[in-house]
């Protein structure tokens, strides 16, 4: 599906306002298929909002959001559901469904969108959990997991449908460096294995360096810097440089 030349995700002049404040201000960004982009920026600069636009949870006030060439904001619910099945999203706080078990959380997308028999779904979910280091946690309730485990379970759920595009909202925030590193490795491994497009929002610079082919720096709803980690290190914008130097900022 990822036709050559068409970006996996493209934002064109997207503006989003909450009240008087423009959270996204005429933002344009194209992410080619298979690329890993890390979105950096201070808190409240619209990084999460950008992700929510891509997966269609929010609609832009102006501009358009294209996923594999289709405008998410103009889609029928049915088309949107189809597009979403090609995407996976890891939420900032994992957002596991707390009324069902961890395993059922992971199996949930499969149960909804595949015609696999229940046994096979369970096996797949267990495998996904094992991939993120949660083998044997299938029957636990989300509330019984630690923050890092929850995040890994969330990642497993996001990967359940083998998405072409994976969106991750601060995957390592609030985690200890070891766990954080594990998540980074998982993301990299995933991309290496499936060739998925990755868009990761983070303020963890070491993570960004590990994961990102390209780094995008947002400030006040605009992209102020874009390029490889090296390019941003050399940026002539003081804020970006300061940010890049604050290693381990979480």
């Amino acid at each position: 599906m990822a036709t050559d030349g068409i970006p996996a995700v493209e934002l064109r002049h997207v503006t989003k306002r909450f009240g008087d404040r423009a959270v996204l201000d005429d933002l344009s960004l194209a992410v080619p298929a298979g690329r890993a982009v890390c979105v950096l920026g201070r808190s409240g600069t619209g990084k999460s909002v950008m992700l929510k636009h891509i997966i269609g949870l929010m609609r832009p006030d102006a501009g358009s959001v294209l996923v594999e060439g289709e405008d998410v904001a103009q889609m029928s619910p049915r088309d949107l559901a189809r597009v979403r099945q090609r995407m996976g999203m890891l939420f900032q706080h994992a957002a596991l469904f707390d009324s069902i078990t961890v395993g059922e959380n992971v199996a949930f997308p499969l149960r909804r969108h595949s015609s696999l028999p229940a046994r096979e779904i369970r096996e797949r979910a267990e495998a996904l959990l094992a991939d993120v280091g949660l083998a044997g946690e299938y029957d636990k309730m989300p509330a019984d997991l630690s923050g890092g485990m929850r995040k890994r379970a969330g990642l497993a759920r996001a990967l359940a449908l083998e998405p072409a595009i994976l969106l991750a909202d601060e995957p390592s925030t609030g985690l200890d460096p070891v766990t954080s590193g594990e998540i980074d490795r998982l993301l990299v491994a995933l991309r290496d294995r499936t060739g998925a497009t990755l868009i990761v929002v983070t303020h963890n610079i070491p993570s960004a360096r590990v994961i990102g082919d390209e780094l995008v720096f947002l400030d006040e709803g605009r992209i102020v810097a874009q390029g490889t980690a090296g390019m941003l290190d050399e940026s002539d914008i003081p804020l970006v440089r300061r940010f890049m130097q604050a290693e381990g900022a979480g």
């Binding site: 269609g56 949870l57 559901a81 596991l96 469904f97 707390d98 909804r112 759920r157 996001a158």
Partner: peptide, 21 residues
Amino acid sequence: AELGAMKVTEQIDALEAVAVD
């Protein structure tokens, strides 16, 4: 309370994200 909690913990968004109405 249940839906309120789901809303503020982004579970509702998560549902949407896995293409569930």
